[in-house]
């Protein structure tokens, strides 16, 4: 083999690694029990969540740009209003120009449909709310984040601070599973975001909304100390699938092989 061929081969290998490096790694989240925050008397108090894999960080502007390049119908000027509102990718300069948005920032202003389609294009899916919450409950050093004082302090700090107008890049401190930025950067879509029953419940408003918004009602909540989870619950229940929000992004999940 000539030297030239070897060099080409090495260059190709490096390029391949660079491409692979651009994709977030998948962290393994072992099987565990999720205790939903809210429950009616008949609702499951515990949900068994099978082991799954979760992107170690949210999807970035750079990755989403590559996706819309491949799938023109998800470009800003092409997307159907049914699948994304007028603010879809509003922080980009144009269809294929990020403008002031940075490549490594988590992508936001994306609808649930766009997030779901991106995930499918990678052979992945969106995590369920149970999966997401389970991964997000892990601390920096222990699986039960409630027992991790550093983690609790970070949580309180973030949820008490309004989103900055310019989002930081992805790459915060990893939790015990190796997953970053579940807190501290953006809110994230889940596959069943519309499973939160806050108003208009089938049983004629059983009081789930009172449990959420009224202090006295928090007797029905599983963990009254978990303020951040209350906020996420309320936020998700306010979403519609076509909504795009300046601090709402997503990450992908995958079943175990």
């Amino acid at each position: 083999m000539s030297m030239r061929l070897v060099l080409q081969w090495v260059a190709a290998l490096i390029a391949l690694c660079a491409v692979r490096g651009a994709e977030p790694g998948l962290a393994l989240i072992p099987e565990a029990t999720y205790r939903p925050l809210f429950r009616g008397e008949k609702d499951a108090q515990e949900v068994r969540v099978a082991a799954f894999r979760l992107d170690e960080r949210p999807v970035t502007n750079g990755e989403f740009l590559a996706f819309v390049r491949e799938s023109p119908k998800w470009q800003r000027s092409q997307v159907k209003r049914l699948f994304a509102d007028e603010r879809y990718l509003a922080h980009w300069a144009s269809d294929l120009d990020l403008g002031d948005a940075r490549v490594e920032q988590p992508v936001t202003n994306v609808s649930w449909f766009a997030a779901k389609t991106f995930a499918a294009s990678k052979g992945k899916r969106l995590p369920t709310t149970a999966e997401w919450e389970l991964a997000a409950s892990a601390g920096f050093t222990v699986r039960d984040g409630a027992k991790d004082r550093d983690f609790q302090a970070e949580l309180a700090r973030w949820y008490a601070t309004p989103s900055p107008s310019v989002l930081p890049d992805a790459g915060g401190r990893a939790n015990v599973f190796g997953v970053r930025d579940l807190h501290g950067l953006v809110w994230e879509w889940t596959s069943d975001f519309n499973s939160a029953m806050v108003t208009g419940d089938a049983r004629g408003d059983t009081g789930l909304d009172r449990q959420l918004f009224c202090g006295a009602g928090s007797v029905g909540a599983k963990d009254t100390g978990n303020f951040a989870a209350f906020m996420r619950f309320g936020f998700r229940s306010s979403l519609r699938a076509g909504y795009t929000v300046h601090n709402l992004g997503f990450r992908c999940a995958k079943d175990m092989p």
Partner: peptide, 11 residues
């Protein structure tokens, strides 16, 4: 999601 119907299965 398109219709704005939320739902969840109980135990």
């Amino acid at each position: 999601a398109l219709l704005g119907v939320n739902y969840a299965e109980d135990s």
